[in-house]
Design a protein around this nucleic acid. Structure first.
Lengths: 248, 248
DNA sequence: ATTGGCCCAATGGTCCAACCAATTTAGGTG
DNA sequence: CACCTAAATTGGTTGGACCATTGGGCCAAT
């Protein structure tokens, strides 16, 4: 006779030592009201007070470091890098991200989904100050564009970040900030396309206008058009590479 | 003049010991052709071959464990949990995620952006086999619905996962899978709404029909309508809570 | 042939004590 | 005060030891 084991029977999890350390540390940080930038107790102090070895404390802090919650400086101390709350959620994404055409296009598709949604929300919710803030970033980008006769990665990023930030949903900024490196590979390896992103320039202002006019539908449309021009650039780059490999 | 400081600007990784260990481990895994589920060398073996202490090896493996790349089983060994390539990108997101109305609504907004885009891509690219796969999950969900007279979290999740999986972009599935726990708090704490998600039921089939008909525009529209019903449920739940707190 | 108990080697988890390397701080010197 | 130096502080690394869990092999009972 073969039994179907009830799924409820599986998950007996032994609370490990370093988990306990992290829980205690959460309580300490919240209880003490520590904020990002503040310094945590030294590893030796933590080990002594928590009655565990420094090795265990270090394993726990290593985990927090990998999550970007703390930063350790040798000779100085361990510093809080992000807000810590009791019920926070860790999403360690590991993405196979190459510099090939497909990988870049995949990242753009993700960005298209998030960017369009953020544009909608920003158009619905942005305050007057938010609008002014976005416009400020837009102007900076436009000035950099004219000065360099081409897109500037940093200023362009600041503009898009401003849209995310004014969406009223902090998750957008956090997710997109974590993907910063991924998206920036476009500018690091533009696949030989000259004036990469050039075509997207005018749509930054049309997107801003839609948000400033509090028109969510138009904002989504402009955001999608903007991303579409980048996709076109990317396809041109892929075609270039193909042509070059044919020649050689 | 106020600048927007990009939240990610700390890539000044001083090439430390455990970094070197991880690089060597990447080479080993790729060179040996190890796949998820395979067993890695023991910590003592790694320490000996790499000429570092076991503590250092453990710190490195702890980092990989926190990223979800490996799983450690005491008494058994360390096992690969995810594919490892040389240029992969780690995005450790830590989101302050409560069970309050705002947090839940924020996660839904993220999901709306990703889900709508995935529906578009699935409608554009899904093969006949993909369509059949989605339909299979749809039928399973509908059967579970009729059997239980309500939405079933697992089957519902499988359906949406099928849409993401057939989008032709593996990033969608990975991101959404990482957010599984976050999205599932709807069902764990439905804020007292009876028949939570009930209203979304019919839109699963209409979404499938749009994808099967290879109609990207309709697919996006149906996906947005589906999420909108869940948002309505959520708002009802928030209203309920308000009413209850008024009573007491 | 199968089940269950038992032992034992292997493996990850924890601990300790010491030392190294980078940083900060406290004096001291001009 | 400005500048340099030495000491204290702090995270990083090492080696060794022991504990807790796992898995396999062995054996007796069924």
């Amino acid at each position: 006779m073969r039994f179907v084991i009830s799924p409820i029977l599986a998950p007996v999890h032994t609370s490990s030592r370093d988990d306990a350390v992290l829980h205690a540390l959460v309580d300490f940080v919240t209880g003490e009201g520590l904020r990002p930038g503040d310094r945590l107790p030294t590893e030796r102090e933590l080990a002594e007070h928590l009655k565990v070895s420094r090795t265990t404390v270090r394993e726990a802090l290593t985990r927090w470091q990998e999550l970007g919650l703390v930063e350790r400086r040798q000779g100085s101390g361990t510093y809080l890098k992000s807000a810590v709350t009791r019920n926070m959620l860790h999403l360690p994404l590991t993405l196979p991200s190459g510099n090939d055409f497909n990988s870049l296009m995949h990242t753009l598709e993700i960005r298209r989904g998030l960017e369009a949604e953020a544009a909608v929300l920003s158009a619905e919710r942005a305050s007057d100050a938010d609008i002014a803030f976005i416009e400020q970033q837009l102007i900076r980008m436009e000035e950099a564009f004219h000065a360099r006769h081409g897109m500037s990665a940093d200023e362009d990023w600041d503009f898009h970040l401003a849209v995310f930030r004014t969406s009223g949903n902090p998750l957008f900024e956090q997710i997109i900030a974590a993907m910063y490196e991924m998206f920036h590979r476009f500018w690091e390896h533009p696949l030989g396309v000259r004036d990469f992103g050039h075509a997207s320039f005018p749509y930054h202002r049309t997107l801003f206008n839609a948000i400033a006019a509090r028109d969510p539908v138009a904002a989504r449309a402009e955001a999608l058009k903007l991303i579409a021009t980048v996709e076109d650039d990317l396809r041109r780059g892929a075609a270039n590479l193909k042509k070059q490999s044919k020649k050689s």
